[in-house]
């Protein structure tokens, strides 16, 4: 075990798989697959595997996504890293081809590819297009594509390994705000399943469910609540599709109070789906939903930081729920 940065953990997974599989490819723009870590060798997929397999392209996310789909259809496992600036550009081909081809072909077609979709939403000042965190909802809505959003470097590596090895197309949401995280990550390859939520904190007074960049604020809120004698159970969804209903239902059956936390817009945020699934399965639950308002994020830090859910927003909503 070594303390590793988020991106080092992700690229370590990819590096291992690319060494194992000489047919595997990686396509990027703007964001070179390069990472360094103290006391570890620099990872540079471009120099290690060469520019036939690792391609730095111009700004064309539709090409990137389409090309890995085509590579996948031809039998090459492939990954593309879509930076947040172009996170929605490849939507159509992921929704209409990656998501549908296996089913439309009666199970004949296979697309073993990973779309790393970087999402932002953390940095005040950039406004609208470069501060939004909304596409988790959009990608999670697509049938036939597994959509995951890790929140720790450990999960990032394990889910990347599982995603590359999966016979299904995987949208691997990569929240830009979590890139600064580091944590204990094994050097060896391992898989974190693509269909399981994780209980991060056990508690009995209420259940807080979040994902990706909503996790740090949810965990911080849980700590504040614990100091006040409120024991929150905190669940990290990790997987938006197919969502792990069982873990949610088990927890809320115990607490009977559910608070969802999203950096995404309120309407149709992952929390809305969480609440719907729990409501279908558990009687007598009280609910609250914290999310970004249905407004594009404004540039002004004063406005943006007021709108983006923070730990105190989460803690206060939890107090009202249990009070």
């Amino acid at each position: 075990m070594t303390e590793k940065s988020w991106i080092y953990a992700v690229l370590e997974a990819a590096q291992h798989e690319m060494r194992e599989d000489p047919a595997m490819t990686w396509i990027f723009e703007l964001t070179p697959p390069v990472a360094s870590n103290p006391d570890m060798p620099v990872i540079n997929l471009e120099t290690e595997f060469g520019r036939r397999r690792v391609v730095n392209t111009g700004i064309d996310e539709n090409w990137m996504a389409s090309t890995v789909i085509g590579a996948g259809l031809a039998g090459s496992r492939s990954v593309t890293y879509i930076p947040y600036q172009g996170a929605a550009m490849p939507f159509q081909v992921i929704q209409n081809h990656a998501g549908k081809l296996r089913h439309m072909t009666g199970g004949v077609a296979s697309i073993p590819v990973v779309f790393i979709i970087e999402l932002t939403g953390q940095t005040p000042g950039f406004a609208g297009q470069h501060s939004d965190y909304e596409l988790d909802t959009a990608y999670a809505h697509i049938a036939g594509v597994r959509t995951v959003v890790p929140s720790t470097p450990y999960d990032a590596k394990g889910m990347m390994t599982a995603a590359i090895r999966s016979p299904d197309p995987v949208v691997f949401l990569n929240p830009a705000g979590l890139r600064t995280l580091s944590g204990e990550v094994p050097d060896e390859p391992y898989e974190v399943p693509l269909d399981k939520a994780a209980v991060r904190v056990e508690g009995s007074d209420l259940t807080i469910v979040s994902s990706g960049p909503g996790m740090p604020v949810s965990l911080e809120a849980a700590e504040r609540l614990a100091e006040e004698g409120i024991n929150a159970e905190v669940i990290d969804l990790r997987v938006l599709k197919e969502m792990d209903t069982e873990t949610l239902v088990t927890s809320v059956s115990k607490t009977r109070k559910l608070l969802t936390v999203d950096q995404s817009y309120y309407t149709l945020c992952p929390g809305a789906e969480v609440i719907a699934r729990v409501a279908e399965n558990v009687e007598g639950v009280r609910y609250k939903r914290v999310a970004f308002p249905d407004a594009p994020p404004p540039a002004s830090p004063e406005m943006f930081l007021w709108m983006r859910p923070d730990a105190e927003n989460v803690a206060e909503a939890a107090r009202q729920l249990v009070g």
Partner: peptide, 22 residues
């Protein structure tokens, strides 16, 4: 800026509800 103005200008008129407080 006034923080609460962030929910204005989404549509031509009015404002959208704050959702960050649950």
């Amino acid at each position: 800026c006034n923080p609460e103005d962030g929910v204005k200008n989404v549509f031509a008129t009015g404002e959208v509800p704050a959702r960050q407080f649950g």
